[in-house]
Design a protein around this nucleic acid. Structure first.
Lengths: 109, 109
DNA sequence: TGAAACTATTCGGTGTTGCTAGGTACCAGT
DNA sequence: ACTGGTACCTAGCAACACCGAATAGTTTCA
């Protein structure tokens, strides 16, 4: 993984996961697979699980344990009301940053 | 400072500073002031200086000490060849991330 | 039977980063 | 002397993503 992407993911990965969960509940393995499919090819598995633990502790998600047909039971995460609020905030912050970056990029020097 | 913005700045702040320096050489105090003017209102001074030390150690910038009429001498930073390469990489990484985030935002769930 | 291979989660240790909260130094005006 | 603006530096902290590995259940196929 490039050092730059690793650093940029700090903060944004959480928003990405919240955004995914705003569409439908999902479990860790599924989220990891989705990320890989969307081009976040080499996000470490462990990273996603650690992130899920964090946002659970913060009350951004609700968790249900669901038996799996294959393998050990899944922990299915869904967005809580607090999570929805945080996601809103995340997008605002993202837009703020993206606007400034875009201006900078277009040679506003 | 919001926790979210703090985390998102990790990785992007370095790119922002490199982008500023790609336009013209500048010293730390000046960069800080510019950032504040552009809406990064509460980026700590110490943060900028620490960042400058880092990118100098990595050879991304050249430094010249210039006496100031007011106050202690300035350290004027200018982008090196390596810095220019890094900035290019930074923008590529940024575009990669921004594209994916935008898709996610438009309800591609 | 046994060993891959896939599903699914967890954890300890590491490095990088921005923030906090100071400090130093130099000069001008009061 | 003192305040305020300019200009830089630093130690200690918290948060985050990564790495590498371990654990556990199920299916597949030799």
């Amino acid at each position: 993984m490039s050092r730059q992407l690793t650093e940029m993911l700090k903060g944004t990965l959480e928003g990405v996961v919240l955004a995914i969960l705003s569409g439908r509940p999902a479990h860790g393995y599924e989220i990891t697979a989705w990320l890989r499919a969307q081009g976040f090819a080499d996000i470490a598995e462990g990273t996603v699980y650690a992130l899920l633990v964090r946002i659970e502790r913060r009350g951004l998600v609700d968790v249900r344990k669901v038996p799996s047909e294959k393998g050990p039971p899944r922990k299915v995460y869904s967005l809580s009301a607090q999570g929805r609020k945080d996601l809103d905030e995340f997008w605002k912050t993202w837009v703020f940053l993206a606007e400034r970056l875009q201006r900078l990029r277009k040679g506003d020097k």
